[in-house]
Structure formats: structure tokens, C-alpha cells
Amino acid sequence: MLAALPTIPRQGDIPVFQEPWQAQAFAMAVALHERGVFSWTEWASTLAAEIKAAQAAGDPDLGDSYYRHWLAALERLVVDKEIASRRQLDMTKTAWDRAARATPHGQPILIENDPDRIR
């Protein structure tokens, strides 16, 4: 039975965050907690639920998908605490997508670049 356990994914020391979005997602959760939007116990149980759901959906959960779970937990709490609706999150995400596509390569991508932005 022990042999069936997957190997622990060890690698040398790598940067704390592998991509900028991971750092942003991490810091947003910390900032919201500090503002008292949720307790850390709430955070840990939401994150644990997202990890469990991802595993159930087939994620081998080797640690590299951790910040995906983190982001999903953050979105869930933002919706649960009625800071924003799912629809608002989706619409803002679509606006960022349009902004990116309207931004020439090499230029900073700003949401102001969204051609459909309401001013």
C-alpha cells in the first residue's frame, strides 16, 4: 500500500512565487484578511475545500497547482462576502481580456485599453 503513494515532488529551492499572478493572488488574500473581511480559520477551511474539490476533479495536487486553489478560494470568499458577484468577476475578466487583445505587444496592458470600457 505504501508503494502506491506517489513520490513527494521535491525540487531545489525555487522562487517563492513562480509567476506574478501567484504573488498577486497571495497578497490579495492577506490584505483582505488584514481588513477583517474573513478570519484565517475561514480562509483555511475555504482553501481546504477548494483543494479537496480539485482533487476530486482529477488534480494530482502536487503543490504546483496550489495557487490555483488559492485563487479559487479567494474568488469564493469575495462572492460569499458579497464584495462582488460571480457575474462582476466574469465581466471584469472579459474586460481585461479585451484590453489585452487591444494592447500592442510590448506595451503595458491596462484595463483602460479595453475598447468597450465605459468611461
Partner: peptide, 25 residues
């Protein structure tokens, strides 16, 4: 000539936009 961001980065930017517009961050 456009740029493209991965889906996950778009989700993070959307959250950041909303949280800063609403004064949470």
C-alpha cells in the same frame, strides 16, 4: 498585434480591479 493573457492572470487582474475600485485594497 494584440497581446494575450492566460485565463488565470485575467482572473487575478479582475479581482484586483474590483478590490481596488471598491476600496478593499
Amino acid at each position: 498585434a494584440g497581446s494575450e493573457l492566460p485565463d488565470i492572470a485575467l482572473r487575478v487582474r479582475a479581482l484586483e480591479t474590483i478590490l481596488s475600485e471598491k476600496g478593499y485594497v
